Simulated assay, not measured.
Amino acid sequence: MTTSSAGAAGGAGVADRTGGPGAAALLRGFLSGGLVGAALACFVVGPVTDRMNLLGAGAGLIAANILLLAIPKAVRRRSAPARPGPRRALARIESRRALSSESGDIPVEFVLTVAPDDASAYRAKFTQSINLVDIPDYKPAGIVVVEYRPDQLWKVQIVTEPDAAWARRAREEVVDSAPASTLATMPTEGCGFCLLMLVGLLLGAAAVVFAFRGDLFDDDGTSGSPNVTSTTTSTTSSTVRITGDVMLMPGQMRGAAEQLIALMGTDKATELSIDEDFMSVAAPKPADPGLVDSFRFRDGKVEATGPHGTRRPDEPLIDLRALPYDRMLFLVVEAKAALGLTPETWHMSFHRAPDTGELEIIVTVGDSYGGASLRADAEGNVVERSPRR
C-alpha cells in the first residue's frame, strides 16, 4: 500500500495560497471609490439643482471607473503565463458539514487534505453538492479523488466517478493530514482596500456636494421647496407555521435536540418521538428524577408542554446526545422509498426491545390506505422491514 505523505513538509513548495493588496491596488481602490461617489452625487445633485449636464458628467465618471479597474486587469492577464489545466490528486476528508437544502442534492462544506503527486500536500475548504443518498460515502478520514488547479489551489472539486486507475489508488493509498496552517484561500483585496474605497466614495460625493452647495442650500429658508409630511407605516407581525419535512433538513434533528436539552436541563429522556415538523420529548426533572415533564420543538422554538407523569428509578433513559442523527435521516428516506407505498406522513419513535432491553428506532410511514414500518438498532442499522402487503 502506497502512502501519500501530507504533513512533513508543512506546505513547502505550494505557493500563492493567499494574497493581499499591494500599494497600486490600494490606490486603485481609493480612486475607484472617489469616482463612484462623485458619479452618484452628480446623479442626485443634477436634478435637484436643475443642472442636467451633471448627469453626463456622472456617466463619464462611471466610464472612467470601469477603465481604471479593467485596464490593469487586462495588462496582468496578457503578461501572465498560460494557466495550467486542472489536475487530479488523492485527498483525505478532514471534515464535512451538510448545509440546508430543499432538494435531493445537498450542499456539503468539505475540508480536505489534497496530496498532489508532484507537490506538498495542503488543505482546501470548499462546498460541493452531493446527492442525499451518497453522503455516507464521504466520511471523515476517507480517501477521494479530486481535481485542483495548481495556480488556484483553493479551487477543488471531488470527482464523484473517477476512472478505474484513480479509483484503485483511492482504495489502496493513504493520505496523511496536512497541518491546518496549509489551508489554501482565495486572494482578497483585504480590509485596507475596502476601507480606502469607502473613504474615496465619501470624499468624492462630498466634493460634488461642496462644489454646488450654493444651489443646494438656501440660508434664508425661503426656497420654493415643498413641505414634506412624514408618515409612518406600521406592519403587523404574525407567526408563520413552517410545514413540510422540516425535520429532514440536514442538522435539524440534532439542532432541535440540543435546543430541547438546553430547556430541559438534562440530555436524558424517557420518551422521544419525531414527526415531519416537530420533536416531542419526555424527560425527568433534574431536581426530582422521579417526576417527568413533556417538551416540544416546533416552528424553530422549544417549549415545555406540562407534566408527563412519573418514572421508576431503574427505568432506562434515552441519551439524546448519543443518537445517530445522520443515520436517522436516512432511515426516514429509506422508509419513504422502500416500503411499498407513497407516504403522506412519517413518524419515528424509540423503544426498548422486549428480549434484550436495547434501544430500537421505529420509523412508520403511511398513506390513506394504511402504513408500513422499519426497525433499526441504536446505531441506525436496519434490522427489519415491514412493508405493506
Rank of each mutant, 00 (worst) to 15 (best):
V146W: 03
V146Y: 02
E147H: 03
R149K: 06
R149C: 00
P150F: 02
P150S: 10
D151G: 05
L153S: 07
W154D: 14
K155T: 09
K155R: 14
Q157G: 10
T160E: 14
E161L: 04
P162T: 02
A165Y: 08
A167F: 06
R168I: 06
R169G: 06
A170I: 01
A170C: 10
A170R: 05
R171N: 04
E172S: 01
E172K: 01
E172N: 12
D176K: 09
S177R: 14
P179V: 09
A180C: 07
A180Q: 09
S181E: 13
S181Y: 04
T182N: 09
T182M: 06
A184H: 00
M186V: 09
M186R: 15
T188E: 14
G190M: 04
C191Y: 07
C191G: 09
G192Q: 09
C194P: 00
C194N: 02
L195C: 11
L195Y: 00
L196F: 04
L196W: 02
L196V: 10
L198W: 09
L198E: 02
L198H: 07
V199K: 02
V199R: 03
G200T: 10
G200E: 07
L202R: 05
L203A: 15
A205G: 15
V209M: 10
F210G: 13
F212W: 11
D215R: 15
L216W: 00
D219M: 07
D219I: 03
D219A: 13
D220G: 02
G221S: 13
G221I: 00
G221R: 12
T222D: 10
S223K: 04
G224R: 03
G224A: 14
S225W: 05
P226C: 04
N227A: 13
V228Q: 11
V228M: 05
